[in-house]
């Protein structure tokens, strides 16, 4: 892993992988999992959806705790931009919870899922355009690095690449509903923040 190596280039610096890289990676993975849910059925769809619930919950929790507060400080009109994003996250979370209580093969699952997908991807693209761009520009490298650690701490709560065979009923019970995952991710972020030398956000 050479992520921390800073490379000086003739016309500028290629920055080290930072919190934005991590979030973009999660956005990509969310998008791909959604395509899997749409395309699959039965156990395949169920497994993809479980992964999606975990990743999406952890991701949005991390954004609410770590990213939006910093974006609020750095973006022009940060307050209103972040307010829009929070509203979108709130709406998406309601849809996610509704879907979480449904059988993925039930006839009304897919139409509702397509609404979630529409909301989440549009939301993610808006974050990329109106928040992340600013963040990279205005937050200091130290701040970005601290944020990355916090998002990684949240990610550990709900691993999204389970090894084959580990995916079982017990795993689901341990991990639980979107709200439960979000709470645990928040706790993990707060605990990690305590351990940071200086607050990352």
């Amino acid at each position: 892993m050479t992520a921390t190596a800073k490379r000086t280039m003739p016309y500028g610096v290629m920055p080290a992988a930072d919190v934005v890289d991590l979030l973009l990676q999660q956005h990509g993975r969310i998008r791909d999992l959604m395509t899997e849910v749409m395309g699959g059925s039965g156990d395949q769809r169920r497994a993809a959806f479980r992964q999606l619930v975990r990743l999406l919950s952890v991701h949005e929790a991390a954004e609410e705790e770590v990213v939006h507060p910093v974006a609020r400080r750095h973006a022009a009109a940060g307050d209103s931009i972040v307010a829009d994003r929070l509203q979108e996250e709130h709406d998406a979370k309601e849809l996610l919870e509704q879907l979480d209580g449904m059988d993925p093969d039930a006839p009304d699952f897919l139409p509702l899922f397509l609404r979630l997908r529409d909301a989440v991807i549009t939301h993610a693209v808006s974050e990329q355009r109106y928040e992340f761009n600013n963040l990279r520009h205005k937050a200091s490298p130290a701040e970005l690095a601290g944020m990355r650690l916090l998002v990684q701490a949240a990610e550990k709560v709900a691993p999204t690449h389970p090894h084959a065979g580990v995916e079982s009923a017990t795993a689901n019970i341990v991990i639980g509903t979107p709200t439960a995952i979000i709470d645990r991710a928040r706790d993990a972020i707060r605990a990690a923040r305590e351990r940071l030398p200086r607050s990352g956000g």
Binding site: M9, Y11, G12, V13, M14, P15, N133, R136, H137
Partner: peptide
């Protein structure tokens, strides 16, 4: 793009 390598 903001990334120098992308612009270039």
């Amino acid at each position: 793009y903001m990334e120098p390598i992308a612009r270039q």
